[in-house]
Write a protein that binds this DNA or RNA. Structure first.
Lengths: 334, 334
DNA sequence: TCCACAGATTACATCGTTGTAATGGCATAC
DNA sequence: GTATGCCATTACAACGATGTAATCTGTGGA
């Protein structure tokens, strides 16, 4: 059986509260008793019961991280950094997958894990204004990525600018048939929308007419989904000059299909991704992409979250992280 | 402020315990009062406080999942399935990264998150017998992967057999200079050891003498680490006939290096991985690998864990999952 | 010698939920 | 009319930690 403050107190010949004082170090304790209590703590291998502490204090030291799908390398890398940063700051992280189902996102926000969590970091897929609008009493929360919602703290990139820049980069050398892969028809995601907007903006600047056929839909943002979508596209369309894939995972699927079909990247067609996942750099050829500091994203998210916990009434804060366009083999015909 | 059983009880004109009975549904409640209580529950938007429940019941409904590094696609896919299965069974999952530091594994096992978790699924890197031996009083725990330790429930594959089979497959067509990539010098991992053992066994059966130079060390099991290790190897050695990489991530790094050096896979050299991560199938060329049902791994792990929680004294159980060798373009010269 | 005072320590109550044991109500059987 | 039994409901205590307010200890000053 696990020992409690009471056991330790008995052993050290002090009151439970004194043990608590030693453990928490907030209330001054005399050197003499502190030593005795610490000895007892060690002998009994005392570990505080966080449920009890959580009940008493109203805070558990646990935050939830909600992502669409941990299996996606991008989500996984994000989760990695958040868990790491959170741990450094003494938080534990509870993981929730929202999947494609918007209901899960909503449940999470409205229930906030029934008091077992102090805050929530949410990487939404489909959370629109209505989901958050219902309940005025939000748990401390930070949203990641692109969100239409502006009533919540938020960390992200300027996706429109990044997508525009990438499109411009792909257009160098006079390439005009630039496709995007990742447009969505069924599922509406904010991310797809803003990246498409950046693409359109670049086309306008370049004086290239939009061609709806080059906006290749791809609902599932995985190599598998991408491979299917691109294969189908290629079966009835000419090879574009370049493909701007909305994530690196999509790009990896595209590279696979192009290689199998005998198209050379970058000689025959350029490919670019977005997110700069670890494997992208080691794809064949290495993937041109939009990169940003994921660790910084995690740090900002946690900063905003703890600040929000301290003051639940302050105005929503919006943090925009810098990004870099990294040109690698998949788009450089050197 | 969040409402409690007491508030609901007052509103419904019953005792708190009756509310609890309605919520939990274990003790029979008359139709009439149940309806009244349910109405009150809905009106007050009651959500049980899990800290209190955890304190009272001694169980929190949370399990911990400890992995070396979430950023690794293999770990991420595993985590994805475990979170999914756990959620289906009503568990929440708390994520812990152990990193390269064995101390973190030890801490986790011995403290078991201070009663905030009911059980632990551990994918160990370096946990050897001593770490577990110290404390006779283990938390309910299941270990994944290869473990020397036999005093704990465990789910894994027959790594020796799989590695042997892969080596034999790579040797087809008379290839004799078969390298392994992922041997470790500094860090001792059980996984590397058993896969090396399978490789040795195959070599013996093939009548090929071991060549220590072909056992390429690679401490960091990532594309980056792999690329470094292989680059260094190639700078002072002839190209082997085949490389058996101990994980798909390692193989992806290898493919990148080989492509950059102008070696053709599979014409000049075969490459194989292990784990069957999503991206492996879409690598260029697609990766030959050892595949197994990760969802089944998650299900077995959770089954063992819940059984262990029910009976903490039963003998340790060992589950070995079937695997399949999947031949893809990286090793088939078709 | 006694008092005042600061600092350390303690007793007690409380957080929200639920198991236990006691109570209440109602119907059937004597 | 009273006894018997059953079921629903209740009062109470407990899980473990900690804030609050009260108590204790010892020091220094008058």
């Amino acid at each position: 059986m696990r020992s409690t403050v009471k056991d330790v107190a008995a052993r050290a010949g002090v009151s439970p509260k004194t043990v608590s004082n030693v453990v928490n170090g907030l209330v001054p304790v005399s050197e003499r008793t502190r030593v005795r209590v610490e000895a007892a703590l060690a002998e009994l291998d005392y570990v505080p019961n966080l449920s009890a502490r959580g009940l008493r204090n109203g805070r558990t030291g646990v935050i939830a991280l909600a992502l669409p799908d941990l299996g996606t390398p991008y989500s996984a890398e994000l989760a990695h950094h958040i868990v790491e940063v959170a741990h450094e700051q003494g938080w534990s992280v509870q993981l929730e997958e929202t999947g494609p189902d918007p209901q899960r996102e909503f449940d999470l926000v409205s229930k906030a894990r029934s008091n077992l969590i102090d805050g929530l970091i949410l990487n939404p897929v489909a959370l629109d204004a209505s989901a958050i609008g219902v309940d005025g009493n939000l748990p401390p929360m930070v949203m990641l990525g692109e969100v239409a919602q502006r009533r919540v703290d938020h960390v992200g990139l300027d996706n429109v600018a990044a997508a525009r820049e990438m499109t411009l980069a792909l257009a160098q050398g006079g390439r005009r048939r630039i496709a995007i892969l990742g447009a969505t028809k069924t599922r509406r995601t904010d991310t797809a929308e803003v990246r498409t907007r950046g693409y359109h903006r670049a086309l306008a600047e370049l004086g290239i007419d939009r061609d709806p056929r080059l906006e290749i839909p791809c609902d599932e943002w995985t190599p598998r989904g991408s491979a299917q979508a691109l294969t189908e596209f290629l079966s009835s369309n000419d090879l574009p000059d370049a493909i701007f894939c909305f994530t690196d995972s999509i790009a990896i699927g595209a590279l696979s299909v192009l290689a199998a079909a005998g198209h050379r990247v970058p000689q025959d067609i350029l490919v670019a991704g977005f997110d700069d996942i670890d494997h992208g750099q080691y794809a064949v050829p290495a993937l041109t992409t939009i990169s940003f500091d994921k660790r910084a994203l995690a740090e900002e998210a946690l900063r905003l979250l703890t600040e929000r916990m301290a003051d639940r009434n302050r105005d929503p804060v919006e943090v925009t992280l810098p990004y870099r366009l990294i040109v690698r083999g998949s788009s450089s015909v050197s």
